[in-house]
Every structure is written in structure tokens, then in C-alpha cells.
Amino acid sequence: MALLVTGVITGLGLFLAGVPGAAVPERTTTVSVSAGETLADLAERFAPGSDTGAVVAKIKELNSLENAVLVPGLPLTVPVAAEVAEGGR
């Protein structure tokens, strides 16, 4: 019985670990970095509900960023969710 319970718990853990957040949006927009803003902040603001880590990776890829040091005023291309791009409609 203990083996069965352990197997079920392990199986559920593996299944749930494999369920990612929403996909990274295909649509992009260009934004200007504000003072103190991080890539994670941008990911959460422009692609809410998506996997933040995946969105950050996409921002780095789109902008050829080697490191995550951001300068205020720096223009960045970021993925943007449809509801954000359309003003929350």
C-alpha cells in the first residue's frame, strides 16, 4: 500500500512539474526601461500569466542581451500578451 501511495505522489509531482505557465506570446512591442526595472518586472507586466522565466529568456534573445543589467531609457523588444496589447479588453 505504501508503495502505491508513493507511486501516486511521485507521478502527480512529475505531472504537475511538467505543466508550464501559458506560452510566451508571439506578439512583441518595444518599451523603454524605467529606473529600477528588471527583466522579470517587464515579463510580468507585458506577459501576465506566462512563465516569467521563459519570457525573460525570450527578452534576452530578442535583444541579444548577455547580462540582465538594464539602463533607464534603454529600448527593449518584449513579448506582449494580446490582452495587454489591446488595452485589457
Rank of each mutant, 00 (worst) to 15 (best):
G53K: 14
V69Y: 09
L42F: 07
A43H: 03
E26K: 11
T30E: 15
I59P: 00
V56P: 04
A40V: 12
T52D: 05
I9G: 01
V5Q: 09
G11T: 00
V5N: 04
E26G: 01
T28N: 07
L14S: 05
P72T: 05
G18E: 11
L3M: 09
G36W: 11
T52H: 06
D41F: 11
L16N: 09
V19F: 04
A35H: 06
G49H: 12
L16E: 12
K58A: 10
V33P: 11
G11D: 01
S50Q: 07
P48Y: 11
T52M: 05
S50L: 08
D51H: 03
E44W: 01
L39R: 05
S34W: 02
V71Q: 12
I9T: 14
P72I: 04
V55K: 06
V31N: 04
E66I: 11
N63A: 08
G49Y: 12
A43R: 00
V24C: 10
P72Y: 06
A68I: 01
I9H: 06
V5M: 14
V55R: 05
V5E: 09
A68W: 02
L14R: 12
G53E: 15
R45T: 02
T28G: 07
T10G: 05
T38F: 06
S34T: 09
L39A: 08
L65K: 08
G7R: 07
L42A: 05
V71G: 01
E66L: 14
V71R: 09
T30N: 05
T10A: 15
V55S: 01
T29E: 14
V19P: 00
A40R: 14
R45N: 00
D41T: 10
V71E: 14
D41A: 13
V8P: 02
L12Y: 12
L65F: 10
S64Y: 04
G53S: 15
K58R: 15
L65A: 07
S34M: 10
E61S: 13
T10H: 02
P25R: 01
G21Y: 05
R27G: 00
E37D: 02
G18D: 13
I9Q: 06
L39C: 11
V8F: 14
G11L: 01
T52S: 12
A22K: 11
I59G: 02
S32I: 02
F46P: 00
V24H: 09
T10Y: 13
D51T: 06
L70W: 08
S64M: 04
D41E: 09
E44I: 08
S32K: 14
S64I: 01
D41K: 10
A22Y: 02
L39Q: 06
I59S: 04
V8K: 05
S64N: 15
T52P: 08
D51N: 12
A54E: 15
P20H: 07
V31A: 04
A23M: 09
L16P: 02
I59D: 04
L62D: 01
G11R: 00
A43Q: 03
A47T: 09
T28F: 08
E61W: 04
S50D: 06
F46E: 00
A43G: 06
N67S: 14
L42C: 08
L14N: 04
V24A: 08
A47Y: 07
L39N: 06
E61N: 03
L42K: 05
A57D: 15
F15P: 01
S64A: 15
L39F: 10
L4V: 15
A17P: 00
